[in-house]
C-alpha cells in the first residue's frame, strides 16, 4: 500500500467543494455547508471554491431577520475550527459583482480562473453545489 494511502488508519483524499449559488434563493449553499461540516469529521484534505453567485455566500453584513430565514453566514467563520482553512474565491466573479476581498466575512485566497482550473485538476474528488 502506498504511503499516501494510509494515515491514522484511513485514506486521505483531496476534496474540493465548488460553490456557485447565492445563499438564500435556493438551498444549495446551506446544503453544501452542511456536507462540508459532515465531511470535516472524516479528516480529509478539504478546499472550498466560491465562484459565480457563490461569492455571495460569504458576503459580509447578511441580516436575515426581515426575511425570517436562518442566517448561516457566521458558520463560514467556524470552518477553521474544523480544519477547513483553504477557501478560494475567483477574482473574475468578484469583479463582475462589484465586490472585493474586503466585502467577504472570512479570510480567503483570491484566485484567477486559471488558478482555479489548476486547483480543480489537483483534486481527487470534486463536489459541486
Amino acid at each position: 500500500m502506498s504511503e499516501e494511502m494510509m494515515e491514522e488508519g484511513g485514506t486521505i483524499k483531496k476534496f474540493l467543494y465548488v460553490n456557485r449559488k447565492a445563499p438564500y434563493g435556493t438551498v444549495y449553499a446551506l446544503e453544501s455547508l452542511e456536507v462540508v461540516l459532515i465531511g470535516a469529521a472524516f479528516e480529509q484534505d478539504v478546499s472550498l471554491v466560491f465562484m459565480d453567485d457563490g461569492v455571495f455566500q460569504i458576503t459580509k453584513g447578511q441580516d436575515t431577520a426581515g426575511v425570517e430565514m436562518k442566517n448561516f453566514s457566521p458558520t463560514y467563520r467556524a470552518l477553521e475550527m474544523y480544519d477547513v482553512e483553504k477557501l478560494f474565491v475567483e477574482k473574475e466573479s468578484l469583479d463582475a459583482r462589484g465586490l472585493t476581498e474586503d466585502d467577504l466575512l472570512v479570510p480567503v485566497e483570491v484566485m484567477t480562473s486559471e488558478q482555479i482550473r489548476d486547483l480543480m485538476e489537483d483534486q481527487d474528488v470534486i463536489l459541486s453545489f
Binding site: Y24, G61, T64
Partner: peptide, 11 residues
C-alpha cells in the same frame, strides 16, 4: 429591502 438586507448588500 428585507431581501437586500438578508444578502448583505443594503449599503
Amino acid at each position: 429591502e428585507p431581501d437586500l438586507a438578508a444578502r448583505g448588500i443594503a449599503a
